[in-house]
Simulated assay, not measured.
Amino acid sequence: MRILYHHRTRGRHVEGVHIRGIVGALRELDHHVDVMSFPGADPERETDTAASSGRGRIAGLVTRLPGIVFEAFELLYNAVTLLRMGRAWRHAAPELIYERYSLFLFATVWLARQRGIPLVLEINDSALVDRVRPLTMKALARRIEGWCLRNATGLVFISSYFRDIAGQAYGDIAPSVVSPNAVDLPRFDPARFDRDRLRAERGLTGRTVCGHIGAFAHWHGMDSFVEAIANRLDGVPDLALVFVGDGKTLPAVRELIAARGLSDRVLLPGRVPHEEVASWIACMDYAVLPNSNHYGSPMKLFEFMGMGVAVVAPDYAPVAEVIVDGHTGWLFPRGDATACVERVLELAQRADERKRVGHAARAYIASERQWRNNAEQLLTLVPTGASA
């Protein structure tokens, strides 16, 4: 089947990982997949040409515009989408459109209905939730979103929470599946790495290592977690913390670590390329996710578990859909920083428990949460005749 994957993201970081995962899995299932990206944002290319890099910088400037202006540009992008789709379809019309849903983008749904082409929307964002960038035209965004979710052929939600609130708000939405994130298991395979060598190179030999990979943003709770555990590390002398990533709260965390004299216990390497993430996870005995949100499906959760590294995580519904407490990870009451710290410190002394749960986490990922599982699931939403 000829599939067009359309997205309006910059195709970087987690977004790019997800796009490449789905596209690659569909191709492994013998489908022809073309990707239509935001100009200058190609998630399949490892390096940018000068031209695409320039367009990417322009896209970055657009994202910093004031709310009402930025949202006006989002609306105008519907015209761009119609023009690009029209040009592309003159050469070869797709049999299925798979779109990563973006706010204010309705042109693809409208065009698919006009042409009688099945369209499946993947819902990672919504006008119904609190977002990093607040909405100015919230009422209009919700009206457009409701129309899109009712008129698509099918919907892929990354969590049950998303599906539940969409159904309550918009009524009779299209048939749907819940498909959390996934992982490229061959790439995230602990057997690929010389763990002892990596730990020696990074000063972690003989340590029990608890890690985290992701953005240092307030809603992820890394600053609060480090502050809460800093005074407790003396009681667990073998425990080292490795927190990979950067963001707004990283400078404050660095200052706290330096002030407490913990630089030899807490390693902060900053952001690393995604191709190096697995090598850092290979150094860890277990991991921690101090906070999340009601609707998200954290990519890092799946990458940890794929490497056989189980996670201490808050009991938000999307996380609890993946982690069974004491079997594929450990849950603590969301918002309870003390409970999170206590569980991390307790597990530092329980090597057998970490290994047992880590093995179960990888087995779960292998059986249910590879990108191929997601691709097979989304294809169940396509009418039989279209997938022939």
Rank of each mutant, 00 (worst) to 15 (best):
S159L: 01
V242E: 06
G86W: 04
A107M: 04
A363N: 10
L96G: 02
H294M: 13
A230V: 08
Y101W: 04
S263R: 07
P269T: 12
G11D: 05
T9N: 09
T108K: 03
C210Y: 01
L111S: 01
G60W: 10
V120Y: 10
L26A: 06
R87I: 00
G116N: 12
I323D: 04
R187C: 12
I323L: 07
E368G: 12
P43Y: 05
T384C: 00
S52P: 14
R131W: 01
A258N: 14
T9I: 07
V69Y: 00
T81L: 04
D184F: 12
S224G: 14
V309I: 09
R163C: 10
W110R: 12
A361Q: 01
R90K: 15
A351C: 12
G11A: 10
D352I: 03
L233F: 05
R8A: 15
F162W: 02
P39W: 04
L198T: 02
I158P: 14
C148E: 10
S53F: 13
F216T: 06
V253N: 09
I58K: 13
K138V: 04
G11L: 08
R64P: 14
M137I: 03
H218I: 09
R192D: 02
V156A: 09
S37E: 11
V382I: 13
D264T: 11
D196C: 06
L128N: 07
H6Y: 14
G40S: 02
A152S: 14
F70P: 01
Q370Y: 08
R84G: 03
V277S: 09
A25W: 00
V35Q: 03
T49V: 00
E99M: 01
R197G: 12
A320T: 14
V312H: 00
W330F: 15
A166I: 08
L135Q: 02
D352F: 07
V253Q: 02
S179T: 14
M299A: 13
M305A: 12
P190D: 10
V35I: 02
L345H: 05
A169F: 09
L250I: 04
A79Q: 08
A348Y: 05
H7F: 05
H327V: 15
R260C: 09
P314Q: 08
R115L: 14
W219I: 02
C210I: 03
R202T: 01
H18G: 11
H6M: 08
D42L: 05
R8S: 14
A337V: 15
N373R: 12
T63H: 08
A361H: 03
E71F: 05
D336H: 06
N373M: 11
E122G: 00
R27D: 02
R143M: 10
E44P: 00
V209D: 03
G56C: 06
G261S: 06
P314I: 10
E353F: 04
Q370N: 08
